[in-house]
Simulated assay, not measured.
Amino acid sequence: MCPMKLLKVTAASATVFALALTATACGSDDGGDSGNGGGKKITVGIKYDQPGIGLKEPDGSFSGFDVDVATYVAKQLGYDAKNIEFKETPSADRENALKRGDVDFIVASYSINDERKKQVDFAGPYLLAHQDLLVRADEKGISEGTDLNGKKLCSVTGSTSAQNVKKEIAPKANLQEVGTYSECVDGLASGAVDALTTDDSILAGYSAQEQYKGKFKLVGLKLSNENYGIGVKKGDTEMVDKINKALEKMVSDKSWDKAVQENFGDSYKNEPAPKIGDIVK
């Protein structure tokens, strides 16, 4: 009888152990859960190579205005900074990243436009930038009013800046589209391209980097209005509403002003904080 008793106890113990494993597995899910903290993770898409906007530092930390905005918003949704996972989302992959569910939302110099709104929903805007040109400091051939057709320009694949050049600004320009703005900066420094074109906020961040101080200058154009929004999976109106409330609070408690000053400094003449839903055409 003893062996039988041992068998029964062992079987019962195995059942309890299996149930414990199941409960542990269910409780260890660290995937994002919209607006629900509780120690769970939230994944936010940002840029890794835009100084002042979204930059992955050599020590693995992240800095930039978008990073500060994302961190503030995530906190309002119930997530501590330690529970935020930042994921690199290049311009050309932002819509797909949301569709695949790779990220919960995207804060990555993501300009709101009608074409993108067909694929994703946007909260915001939270910053109004303008497309401009970054040129070498000794450049004299490009200034306000210069015809850019025939010039060697560089921008990022999938960016609104690249689309603006091809459709409106200079359809006959020699436009080089690359994966990151860092590649454009390298091309500008080497003389391979005449100008880097994108949002003035991004250009200001690059020109302010220690290794580039005095080497580049912004032309000072306002070639377009870029309303930065926070991208959310299409149809997730609840998330959009929560993020909009967080952004409104960020402006009202002056955290927005602090983030602008800390990331852009006095050299960037930013526009006032936009009102939620106020898209400047």
Rank of each mutant, 00 (worst) to 15 (best):
V178M: 02
E210F: 12
V9H: 07
T15M: 12
S34H: 09
E115S: 04
A129H: 04
R100Y: 12
A162P: 06
S255G: 10
A11K: 09
E144P: 13
A189G: 11
E262V: 10
G124Q: 00
G229N: 08
D257S: 08
D147Q: 07
D121E: 03
D147P: 08
G205C: 15
C154W: 00
L148H: 00
G214N: 10
G60S: 08
A137N: 13
T24C: 14
D66F: 06
D29L: 15
N96I: 14
E177P: 01
A23R: 09
A92L: 14
P90T: 02
G145I: 10
G32T: 03
I243T: 06
Y79T: 02
G187R: 14
D80R: 13
E88S: 05
E177S: 03
D241M: 11
S155H: 00
A123K: 02
S109L: 03
D147S: 07
K118E: 10
G150V: 02
T89R: 03
F65T: 04
E183A: 14
Q176K: 15
N270Q: 15
L7K: 15
C154A: 02
S28L: 13
S161N: 02
G231C: 01
T10W: 10
N225S: 05
P90E: 02
I84F: 00
Q211K: 15
K249P: 08
N174V: 05
E262A: 14
A18P: 07
G158M: 05
N270A: 12
L221Q: 15
Q119K: 14
N149T: 07
K99F: 13
V67Q: 06
T71C: 10
A162H: 05
I142F: 01
D59K: 07
G150W: 04
I106C: 00
A189N: 14
N164Y: 11
T180K: 10
R94K: 06
V251M: 09
M1R: 08
S143G: 14
D186I: 12
E85N: 15
P272W: 09
L223P: 01
K167F: 01
